Every structure is written in structure tokens, then in C-alpha cells.
Computed example of a mutant assay.
Amino acid sequence: MSDIMGQNSLGNGSGTVSPAEVIFDTTTQTFATDVLDASMQVPVIVDFWAPWCGPCKQLTPILEKVVLAARGAIRLVKMNIDDYPEVAQQLRVQSIPAVFAFKNGKPVDGFMGALPESQVRDFITRLVGDVGPTPAEEMIGLGLASLQAGDLARAAQAFGAAIQHEPGNPSAVAGLARCYTESGDFERARQTLGLVRPDGKNHADIKAAEAALSLAEKSAELGDTSELLARIEQNPKDHQARFDLALALNAMGDREGAVDQLLISFEYDRKWNDEAARKQLVEFFDAYGPKDEITLSGRRRLSSIMFS
């Protein structure tokens, strides 16, 4: 496949471990060795589960992901209480999923129920401290820095490596899609956005990448801005000319100028073309990101006009 990712490899990151090294099943007979003895070296968390337990099926993949991200600082041991109920009974497990953390041969923490990934990460952090960014997060950081520097090839390689570590990662998928968008390969950008995992479709980075792609596709259809400027000079209320000029200015990197043109149009006639100026401003803000200075000032100015 010929694309901006090129042929160079960024590698797989450092400090990775295989699942077999830190995640395995245990039995009543091997529990002392797998958990109590092992916890003398590193913390061990035990996931009590059963095949019929729906929440267990939600929690276990999250536990596995977070434990792997800790790169050997903690182990996950899974115990099927249908096959091996004795330990769960001794620990007075009332419902599953139930998770217990062991250190130095003793239970020190735990929780019941299917927690979201953020809370599972907090639970692991309490046990082992901050283990730093995951390999995927490291690659995403490199990708963002390269993208900002204009090195699309290196950025695409970094985001691609992050996707290899964490398939469907929203930030990685969005970053790679932006690389294709900025290179003009809009079809590949749209295909890349389709790689995001189901729970990441509404992620802020994905929404921003979708908005950036939409803007790029619209801008590609525009020509020279001199004609648009002439039309506006002749008729300041030529809304279509201002709208097209805003898209062109945005494509050239003049975000402030693009926002200005749409705000002027909206102030002249809010309802023009079914509030097209306001809707386009919202798309700009989505593409720029919620913390961007132009987004913040633009939203304030838009609100001032709307409520004046």
C-alpha cells in the first residue's frame, strides 16, 4: 500500500510485556503460588468471575488492558468461581465480578462490579504508582509533535504504531486520519476514521478529525480568493462569498480571519441559508478543539451576537 506512512518503522515501543507474562488463570490448588507467593514480589490482582456473568465479560478485558499497560508492575490472576469456589467463599465474595488486590501475601484493596476503565486505572495506580505513558500513548505524543512540525510521514508512522498497540484507539485513529486529510487523501482519511473502536466514535479527537476532513473537502472545491474579496467589496452582504472566503481562509491557516468572516455574515443575517454561518462556525470550533484560543474567543463572540 502506497501512502504517507512510508516504509520506515518506529518500532514497537519499549518496556512491553506479553500477556502470558502477567495474565493467567489459577485454581484452588495453585492459588497460594500464583497469588500469595507472587505478591511478595509484585502486587497481584485476582479477578473472580464466572462464564454466566455479563458484567464480568465487560470488566475482564479492561483489567487485562490496564495490567498490560503497567508493563510488568502488576499481575492479573483470573479465577472461575464455578470451577473453583473455595477461595471466593473464604474471602466472602457475595457477587461478581469481584476484584481483590494482594501485596506481601495479604489482600490490601478491592472492588466489586464492572468499573469503567478510568476507575480501574486509578485502582491500579494506587497499587503500583504512576507507571508512565503506555507505548500507545508514547506513540500518540510523538505523532502529535510530528504533525505540529509538519512531518506528516513521521506522524503517520507514529499513529500507525499506536494503532498496532491499541487497535481502534480514538486518538491514534484521529491522528492518522488527520495526516491523510492534510496530505489531500480524503478517501483514505475517511476509511481510517472507520477503524475507531465502537466506544470511541464520539471521542473528542474523532469529532475534531471528522470536522477537519469535512472542512478540507469543502475547501478543496474553492478557487482563488481574489474574486470572493471583490464580491464582498462590491456587496458586504454577499453571504455566499463570505462563507466561501471563510472556508478558503481556514484552508490557508488563517483561522481568525475565517471565523471573522462567518461572524460578520451571521451578524448581518442570522437566518441566511438556514443559519449556515453559525453551523459552519460550530464545525470550525469542533475542528480546532474546545481549548483552542480561537475557539474560545469565537464562541464568546458568537454568544454575544446571539443574545444581543
Rank of each mutant, 00 (worst) to 15 (best):
F159M: 12
Q148T: 13
G160K: 06
E138C: 11
S146H: 11
A162M: 10
L144D: 15
P133H: 04
G168F: 08
V173S: 08
G132E: 00
D130P: 01
G160Q: 15
N169K: 15
V128M: 09
G150E: 02
G150L: 00
F159Q: 10
S146F: 08
A158M: 10
V128F: 07
R154G: 00
N169W: 07
A156E: 08
A149I: 03
P167V: 03
A149C: 03
L144I: 11
V131G: 03
G160H: 09
D151K: 05
T134I: 06
A161T: 12
D151T: 01
E166C: 14
P170N: 07
G132F: 00
H165D: 14
A158R: 04
P170W: 04
A145P: 14
M139R: 11
A145E: 13
P135D: 06
Q157H: 09
Q164I: 14
E138I: 10
D151Q: 05
L152S: 15
V128S: 03
D130R: 03
A153E: 14
P135C: 05
N169G: 15
E166K: 13
N169D: 11
G129T: 00
T134W: 04
M139V: 08
A162R: 02
L147P: 01
N169H: 13
S171H: 12
H165S: 14
A136C: 12
Q157A: 10
A162S: 09
S171P: 10
P170Y: 02
A156Y: 07
S171C: 11
G132H: 01
A174I: 04
F159E: 09
A136W: 02
G132N: 03
L147E: 03
A153V: 12
L152I: 14
Q157D: 08
A155Y: 04
A145Q: 15
G132T: 00
E166M: 13
A161E: 10
T134H: 01
F159R: 08
A172Y: 06
L144K: 13
G168Y: 08
A174R: 00
N169P: 11
T134S: 12
G129F: 00
V128R: 02
A149G: 00
Q148D: 14
P170L: 07
Q157W: 07
V128H: 03
A158G: 11
Q164A: 13
A153Y: 10
A136P: 01
P133W: 04
A145Y: 08
A156L: 13
A158F: 05
A174G: 03
H165G: 12
Q148S: 11
V131F: 09
G143I: 09
A149V: 01
E137T: 05
P167H: 11
G160C: 08
P135T: 03
V131Q: 12
G168I: 06
A145N: 11
Q164L: 15
Q148V: 12
A155W: 05
P135M: 05
S171K: 12
G143F: 03
G132L: 00
G160E: 07
H165E: 14
G150M: 00
G168T: 09
R154D: 11
A158T: 08
V128G: 07
A155H: 07
A155N: 02
I140K: 06
V128E: 04
S171D: 15
I140P: 03
A161K: 14
V173P: 04
P167K: 06
G129E: 02
Q164S: 13
I163T: 09
E138V: 15
A145F: 09
E166R: 13
P170F: 05
I140H: 03
N169M: 12
